[in-house]
Design a binder for these strands. Structure first.
Lengths: 160, 160
DNA sequence: GTTTCTGCAAAGCCTTTGCAGGCGG
DNA sequence: CCGCCTGCAAAGGCTTTGCAGAAAC
């Protein structure tokens, strides 16, 4: 088939690395897989299977949801992407490296998503590894709670 | 209806507190709800809706899965239980207090679940609160990774 | 040329919802 | 008694799977 369009506003380097890793592992570089990766690199993180589906379908209307799921399963199996289980369905993210890596804080009040630099988890990771013998894999991590703004609002409410 | 049997090998005190909280919030203390709470208190932590269903059905065969889900939704809404989203379905846990509180580590290899004492997260919690202004709610927390046994096995494999 | 991969369709989970009757307060 | 709650059944989402044809290597 012909690739109609592949746009990439995001993490181009990482995207290429992953294509390379796929090929090396003996998997075929089909246009569908390339487009899924483009969509994931473009929309930074936290995409649902359906969002990826819709994104790719704009360039290639015959694209199928089953292909999204099969590609995502493959990426997760090769540790090139991670699945984030959430109520209402899983979300997927390419594994990030170095300065691009980050965790998330989700506000239970306003549902806002905030980034947390990775170093915050280093101490915990090491301590668990050292004292418990369990090796944490926390390439991606989500903390639920209250953001600063909503916390302030709650406090005002409590006073009145 | 008649309650056939309510056994409770677990956290009786907490269980009673929750019944009280339900009543105070204006909800009816039906035998079904009591039995769901018993099952949750007995099987300690991370039960699936289906496991609760099967447990209660042993005492009361007419029991329905929909009732489990409705009860669980209610408990979560009142912050008496928490939902833990996992691949293959959510798991539920009564909110634990004091020394009963604990977090979980899930091994990606053998799928084993291990407990992590709560103090491990205190430092992270405080640091995020102090430096970022975000108030983490981590009554339940799950870390994915490799348990000690599986890690050892992986290392042997790498050497050979 | 093979073998893998895709698109299509159908099925499989987990979870929610509508409704009539039953039970708790 | 009133209104909430249950059991039953059916529907709703997300995800997986079987299969024949198409595409990658």
């Amino acid at each position: 088939m012909q690739i109609v369009a592949i746009t990439n506003g995001g993490n181009l380097v990482r995207h290429g690395e992953i294509l390379e890793a796929l090929r090396k592992a003996g998997y075929r570089l089909t246009p569908q897989r390339v487009m899924v990766l483009s969509a994931m690199a473009k929309g930074k993180g936290h995409l649902s299977a359906d969002e990826i589906y819709e994104e790719v379908r704009q360039a290639y209307p015959f694209f199928d949801l089953a292909t999204v799921y099969r590609t995502l399963q493959l990426l997760v199996k090769l540790h090139l992407a991670t699945a984030i289980e959430e109520a209402g369905g899983a979300r997927f993210e390419l594994v990030q490296e170095g300065s691009n890596q980050h965790h998330h804080m989700v506000c239970e009040e306003c549902n806002g998503v905030f980034d947390l630099p990775p170093h915050y988890l280093n101490a915990l990771k090491e301590q668990v590894m050292r004292e418990v013998g369990f090796e944490p894999h926390m390439e991606h991590f989500t903390i639920h709670g209250l953001c600063a703004d909503c916390r302030e609002r709650e406090e005002k409410k409590a006073v009145s």
